[in-house]
Write a protein that binds this DNA or RNA. Sequence first.
DNA 1: TTCGCGATTGACTCATCAGTCAATTCGAGC
DNA 2: GCTCGAATTGACTGATGAGTCAATCGCGAA
Lengths: 206, 206
Amino acid sequence: MSARNEKLAAEKRRVILDAAVRVFARQGFNQCRVSDIADEAGVAYGLVYHYFRSKDEVLDTLFLERWNVMLEVIRELDGQDLAPREKLYAIASFIVDSYRHDPELMKVIIVEVTRAANSFGQTHLDKIREAYDLIAGIVERAQLDGAFKDTVTPRFAAMAFYGVIEQVLSGWIFETLPQGEDEFEQAKALVVETICGGLDAVSATA
Amino acid sequence: MSARNEKLAAEKRRVILDAAVRVFARQGFNQCRVSDIADEAGVAYGLVYHYFRSKDEVLDTLFLERWNVMLEVIRELDGQDLAPREKLYAIASFIVDSYRHDPELMKVIIVEVTRAANSFGQTHLDKIREAYDLIAGIVERAQLDGAFKDTVTPRFAAMAFYGVIEQVLSGWIFETLPQGEDEFEQAKALVVETICGGLDAVSATA
DNA sequence: TTCGCGATTGACTCATCAGTCAATTCGAGC
DNA sequence: GCTCGAATTGACTGATGAGTCAATCGCGAA
């Protein structure tokens, strides 16, 4: 296959993936048909199966593409010489900005994978756990440094931190919380403030 | 229908509901067939449709039964003269104890309804929101009292609080967090400590 | 211009299940 | 022991939708 053809194939594959995001966000993974994805992409039914082995693989691909970027960002941050609080702020920022940039994709990832732990969540549990582990690592080192008090296990703190973020995104997705530029910026700070206020050694025993 | 018959009917209905909890917890709502529920209950297929209009209604019933108890508990607590922190602790306790008492039911409620917002979550969004609103009310009054600082909107604080709890339960459900009597008791305290540390006026400016 | 191969098409197959319903059993009241 | 209505049964229907595949298209190489 020529380089030109490879590029065309990659582009067509992307067209299908992008269409799938819109369809999954609108109808939900289980409620939509493969033909809906094909229609949305302006492509024949069978072509979806030329580029993907199954309907599941489409969702898997969307999730892994984005989640791996996030893991990379966290690892990168982890290596830098930043205050623990700064690191958590950067992680919250990345996730909130991901939502700001492509709310439909984040809706799909959260609703269909991260929070749908029976079907896809189970499949990707290890990948999801990787994120918790990285965050737990940040907390653990912060505790050793004395920046965080150690009344909470790092793993618990990681779950709490991630849980707050996911709940806030869910709030936006289901319109339980108001959204907008201001709210996005505020949320980054509030997530960190809410969590760290309870973790910071400084405010430990007031 | 005689009183005796009514009682028998209610009991049979319960047998089906209890069987459904086990099946939903094991296989997931979408993955299981109605015949699985009937088999688990030791009852003919058609009888499920004698007691429930649809497969959905079985799940709706399970969710509403439990969620309404929780709303009642929160309202009851809300009326009492307790410190805000005590109120939040009591709510966390109730939810954790619900899990301790019937982990399968809580798994079903969280995985299939609360966190499955596309299908059932959408249907029950208002009921779920009621819980957020009650918690937000507690926070709001605490802020007016001066017990909590008001850097965070009550609604945001409520989402954060509930998000941490749900993430912890999810951790137990998917075995990302260790569970056991000690962990359950600890979790109650840690959820409140983690959240209130960032809300408490006392530890506001350390 | 023709050949070959991958891209593309969409009608079709086939398994799966939710929900129906006619038939049967059961039990309370007379 | 008879009657009647409710409880119970499970075979059946009908819709749905994932995945297949044989046919066609179109592009690049010779």
